[in-house]
Computed example of a mutant assay.
Amino acid sequence: MTLRVNGKVVTPSGVIRQGCVEVRGDRISAVAEFPSIRDGHWIVPGFVDIHTHGGGGHTFTTGEPDSARAAAAFHLGHGTTSLLASLVSAPFELMRSATTAFVPLVQEGVLAGIHFEGPYLSAARCGAQNPDFLRDPSLEELTELIKIGEGAVRMVTLAPERTGALEAIGLLTTHGVVAAVGHTDATYEQTCAAVTAGASVGTHLFNGMRPVHHRDPGPAVALLTAPNVFCELIADGVHLHEGTLTFAVATAGAERCVLVTDAMAAAGMPNGEYELGGQAVTVTDGVARLARDGAIAGSTLTMDAALRHAVQVGVPVPDAVRMVSTTPALAVGLGAQVGALQAGLRADLVELDDELNVVRVMRAGEWVQ
Rank of each mutant, 00 (worst) to 15 (best):
D49N: 13
L83K: 09
A186Y: 07
S29D: 04
A297C: 04
F47Q: 07
E108H: 07
A364E: 10
A73T: 13
E33Q: 11
G46T: 09
H183A: 08
A250K: 15
L290C: 05
A266N: 11
V9Q: 02
L233A: 14
R4W: 00
I16S: 03
V368A: 00
A266D: 07
R292V: 15
C192M: 13
I169P: 04
V350L: 01
L301T: 12
V103N: 12
G176P: 08
A123H: 14
A252W: 02
A310H: 07
G113A: 09
V177W: 05
A180P: 05
Q337G: 00
D348T: 00
E351H: 00
L349P: 00
V31Q: 02
D236I: 10
N6I: 07
L121H: 10
A159I: 08
V358S: 04
S325N: 04
V338S: 00
R69E: 14
G182W: 06
G176M: 11
N130D: 13
T326P: 03
R360S: 02
V10N: 03
V317S: 04
R27S: 06
E93T: 15
L223C: 11
P160S: 11
L223I: 12
D216L: 12
A179D: 05
M264L: 15
H213K: 14
L158E: 05
